[in-house]
Design a protein around this nucleic acid. Structure first.
Lengths: 168, 168, 168, 168
DNA sequence: TTTT
DNA sequence: TTTT
């Protein structure tokens, strides 16, 4: 479909240290749980109320996974830009189940640390994405804020991620 | 949590005529299924490939529900701005299940028709939201593009929606 | 025009303490300068490079102006959601000049503090916008994160701001 | 600055056929004027009012420039995702002037046609950006919806665009 | 200068 | 289940 947009923007806090798994062919996948919350004052009682929403974020991009692995800890405040994706799976009873996740994978996906933790000596913006690979040519301090690399090394992660049916 | 953002932006097509239900106290809730899709060219085969993602959109705002009811039909192209929300429910076996939806409810939620269908004589932007109610003071043709009303009549839909545990 | 979107999202740091002015009829207007920056590694030299962009942000909303006045100081990190607006003015030679600003005024505009400074005892999200006025019914600590109020008191700021030709 | 975001999202109509210029070294730059507008009903008079905002959009990305050149005509409805950028220039009196533009250049920039005009036989989403070049490997119908290519041919446009001081 |  |  021409003219389609699927974008999620979150600013929230990481609920637990991220898990990093690997596909059979060695590519990393990071899983994050991020909380966003709203507070408001109840019209009747005047009490302050809060509602927290938990989001599952899945990072397929190799460069962003490195950032997650090195810098993102429980409690970190992140800016996330990704896409909504619902995947189907079977539970133990063989029933179809669906899980919706915020996926950071291809073009336009970003993860930025907002609380300045873990910065190993240098700031980095998305501009660092200008090279073929955000991190491979980065011999100095790694980048705590970054965008996915594309077209690096043996081909784009993006198209392969869509082609393969990665078991996750 | 101060400093939290939970935002979803979609541009896609409606998969079926919307369903409008009502809560016990008469407020409307509209359900939409929206498809977004990406196409790309496979690196190896050179073939064009496509992946469609389906999103469930739930509209709690009364004014937006009217717009949905009157103008949104199967096939319509929409711009949606809402929030991610996951709700828990029990299946027939009594097991916990979770569904993630794009909710249009409070501040910042928008729904805009992008294909010009169904426009009953007048355009309307989000500026129409300046009044106490987007539609109540709209003596002419209703607005196919709009933002939620707030503070109208007997209280904010928003806080009541969050307070009540609406069975949907 | 039906189907129009004009949205700016910034995360950056405030360059100087904000200025608050007032219109003839007493409504506040806050001006902020916000810096965003990108860093990247030069492909040839391998050096890290940085480019900073400065944005002028104008806050018309009364509630958001209070937040700015009380909490936003030089150096604060903010999340801003507003609209692009270009206004025409005459310089001293009588020549037409144009200035483009990020305006926080009506529906969908937000300002959120991301560094936790200035929080006077309670967090507040956009949910607080559910009432007729975000701050007037806020008997406790004011909210450092908020969305514009609408429809409060003597009418909507939004429509009046658009109707009036405020000299700013 | 770690943790910086500079994003503009527009949906609007193109006011005139785009202009395409070239830098000394042959790279294309497209200029677009895009109108967004809001309509609302005046609180007092009840009249419908409209305000149109004009945006200058500058496309540096080579692939997106091709799309603009081939498909974007006066009147087209576009979705644009870019960055705010203010550049300084001197007028004929030697005075400093500033122009703020929405720049489509590097990571995260997108241009999508929303009205289906000009589509030469095949849809293309941002997924097409998975390859080294969005258009170079596209021997079939060109893509009316696309994302910038990166890392194609003799280096990233992005870093060179930032390095060079392109006279535009 | 667009669009509705 | 949409759209191209």
């Amino acid at each position: 479909m021409a003219g389609s947009v699927n974008k999620v923007i979150l600013i929230g806090n990481v609920g637990a240290d991220p898990e990093i798994r690997r596909t059979q062919d060695g590519r990393p996948i990071a899983n994050l749980r991020i909380a966003t919350s709203e507070t408001w004052r109840d019209r009747n009682s005047g009490e302050r109320r809060e509602k927290t929403e938990w989001h599952t974020v899945v990072v397929f991009n190799e460069g962003l996974c490195k950032v997650v692995e090195q810098y993102v800890k429980k409690g970190a405040k992140l800016y996330i830009e990704g896409q909504l994706q619902t995947r189907k799976w079977q539970d133990q009873q063989g029933q179809d189940r669906y899980s919706t996740e915020v996926v950071l994978q291809g073009f336009g996906s970003t993860l930025t640390m907002l609380d300045g933790r873990g910065e190993g000596g240098g700031a980095s913006g998305r501009g660092s994405a200008g090279g073929g690979n955000d991190y491979g040519d980065d011999y100095g301090a790694p980048a705590p804020s970054s965008s996915p690399s594309r077209g690096g090394g043996g081909g784009s992660n993006f198209s392969r991620d869509l082609d393969d049916d990665i078991p996750f």
